[in-house]
Each structure stands twice: as C-alpha cells, then as structure tokens.
C-alpha cells in the first residue's frame, strides 16, 4: 500500500516546550495505524502537529503531494484530514445539527454527506435539535466522530475515542472505524490501552519521548506481546 500521510523528522511543541523530537511516521492508504505510548509521550501532539494546531519547528508533514506545514491551520482540514480531539471538544452550547453543520462547512457535500454520516450514527438523527452538551458520553463521542466525518476526510485522526466509555460503546466505535476502513478512510488512532487497539488496528507505532520507536504489524504484536511491555510497560 502507498503512503498517504507521512511525517519526517518532525520537531514540534508548545512555545518553548518541545514535545516531538524527530517524529517520523507513515500512514498507508486505507489502513488503521495506532499510536501507542505512555502519557506525555507525544501522541496527541503528533495529531495536533498534523492539524497545524501546534508549531512545527522542523521536518515535513505531507498528505500526498501537499506539504501541510506550509498551510495555515484552518486550511489543513480542507486538504482532507479530520480530527476527533481527546475529550471530544464538542461545541457544547450548539445543537447536534449545528455541530454537524460546522463539519459540513469544511468540504462536505451538504445533505448527501449529512445523510451518509447519520446513517452511520442513527441515534443522532433523533437528537438533532438537542444541545450537544446534554448528550450522554457515548452519544457525544458518536457526534464528535460524525462531525469529523462530515468533512469527508481521506484521513481521520482519532484521539482516545474510547476514553471513559462503557464496553458496548467501545465496541460500537471499533465497528465504525472498521466500516470507515472498508470505505477507504485511513485512520490514525491514539490509544493508551493495547486491548482497545488490537481488534481494529493494522499496524501499531510505539511513541516514546516524542519519537516513533518502532512500527509493527498487529500480527507481530499478537505473536510477541513482550513488545508492548517493552515500550509501554504493561500488556
């Protein structure tokens, strides 16, 4: 499979604090790549660097032929990348429909996109006029994903989507990620728990101190659980 999104020796951080130190990563077309690592390893910062939300001081981030580090942050989603932030970050005072509308403004095809997305999350169809801050945790996560899918992304960035959810909802999120893969959407999935990753990921990148230490196929990980213990300390 060809690489769709590549990070090469990226340095990035928040002001004086450098978090990513030579991060290199490649996302293939149609795969689910999981970033696994301890708290503070640089997983979320990697996603934010791709979105242009933190300052990149060195290196290259390319989506196909487009150099993303040269784009202003608000142009990045228009290139075809959608982001589901950690903690969902919904516009809680806006309704479900308005949250979806924000996603559609980016590059969606209006009602067609909206209906396709609502078919994936039918429960949201009944909640369109409800303020998103009043949804349950699981519904909020669905809305966060639905809002991102309204962008019609080629690449989806998911930051700990299963955090704080009950097992049935975690299974639902996994199913959705698998469905999106079938539809050709490439996904970078940030997780801390390896059991949440194995059923859905194609490859796993181990992030440590702002670098990608190793990227392995998920089959290799299943065969050699010691890898997880080596990089993450549990497993």
């Amino acid at each position: 499979m060809a690489d769709l999104l590549t990070l090469e020796k990226v340095d990035a951080g928040y002001g004086e604090v450098q978090v990513l130190r030579g991060m290199s990563l490649a996302l293939r077309k149609g795969e689910v790549l999981c970033l696994l690592g301890l708290n503070g390893a640089g997983k979320t910062t990697t996603l934010k660097a791709i979105m242009g939300l933190v300052q990149t001081t060195a290196g290259s981030i390319r989506l196909g032929d487009v150099e993303l580090t040269r784009l202003p942050a608000h142009e990045v989603p228009k290139a075809g990348i959608a982001y589901v932030p950690q903690g969902r970050r919904l516009f809680a005072e806006l309704t479900v429909a308005e949250n979806l509308e924000i996603g559609l403004m980016t590059r969606g095809r209006g009602d067609v996109t909206r209906e396709t997305v609502l078919d994936l999350f039918p429960v949201l169809r009944e909640r369109l006029k409800q303020r998103s801050g009043t949804l349950s945790g699981g519904e909020q996560q669905m809305l966060a994903m639905a809002r991102a899918l309204c962008v019609e992304p080629d690449v989806l960035l998911l930051d700990e989507p299963t955090e704080g959810l009950m097992p049935s909802m975690i299974a639902r999120i996994r199913e959705t990620v698998a469905t999106l893969r079938e539809r050709g959407v490439s996904t970078i999935l940030v997780e801390q728990r390896v059991d949440a990753v194995l059923p859905v990921a194609d490859r796993v990148a181990f992030i440590q101190n702002g670098r990608n230490r190793e990227t392995v196929d998920v089959e290799k990980l299943r065969a050699d659980p010691a890898l997880v213990r080596h990089y993450v300390g549990v497993g």
Partner: peptide, 11 residues
C-alpha cells in the same frame, strides 16, 4: 466556544 476546535474544522 472553542477557537482551537473551530480551526480544526476549517474556520
């Protein structure tokens, strides 16, 4: 409500 997330959606 959230300028950073708004940016991530092309605003």
């Amino acid at each position: 409500f959230d300028a950073e997330t708004a940016t991530a959606f092309g605003i």
